[in-house]
């Protein structure tokens, strides 16, 4: 489906480029062992700057979802599933995304998911999620 592109901005560019390379990764505080999303210049827990970037497994559970039926621009294909997924690495580390490769009626809260990437251009891919086999 046609998707508007996320802008490549200083604090988000690395996230989208990593997805394009097939990795789901986040800013991470080394002393706290804490993922920070969206990225911040300091850790909101310890307020320190000892940050790196760490890839996660891409495994998640479905925290909530909605089936969107309204076309928000002419020609948009509907329906599709908008999902709020909970990554397994850290309570509260979540993404709004789409559940794909799954019948709409089979989507349910707490289902297990894994990341798949949809390439949008040379720089950007989106992390989407499908049922874990």
């Amino acid at each position: 489906m046609f998707r508007p592109l996320p802008a490549l901005e200083p604090r988000t560019e690395a996230f989208w480029r990593a997805c394009r390379a097939g990795r789901l990764e986040f800013t991470h505080c080394v002393p706290c062992n804490f993922f920070i999303h969206p990225s911040r210049p300091i850790c909101p827990r310890c307020r320190g700057r000892n940050l790196d970037t760490v890839a996660v497994s891409g495994r998640a559970t479905l925290h909530s979802y909605t089936i969107n039926h309204k076309a928000w621009f002419p020609g948009q294909e509907v329906p599709y599933v908008i999902a709020l997924v909970q990554l397994i690495e850290q309570e509260g580390l979540r993404l709004v995304t789409n559940v794909v490769n799954c019948a709409v009626d089979d989507v349910h809260i707490d289902m297990r998911l894994r990341v798949v990437f949809e390439t949008l251009n040379d720089d950007i891919a989106l992390p989407l999620f499908e049922p874990e086999a």
């Binding site: 489906m1 998707r3 508007p4 592109l5 996320p6 802008a7 901005e9 988000t12 969206p38 925290h63 909530s64 979802y65 909605t66 969107n68 309204k70 928000w72 621009f73 948009q76 599709y80 908008i82 709020l84 993404l95 709004v96 995304t97 789409n98 809260i109 949008l120 989106l126 989407l128």
Partner: peptide, 21 residues
């Protein structure tokens, strides 16, 4: 940028997630 590319293009979508939960 973390909502709209996924088709979450309205507060209706964002808050439907809250309501469903």
């Amino acid at each position: 940028a973390f909502l709209v590319p996924f088709g979450a293009m309205s507060a209706a979508n964002w808050l439907a997630l809250y309501a469903r939960r």
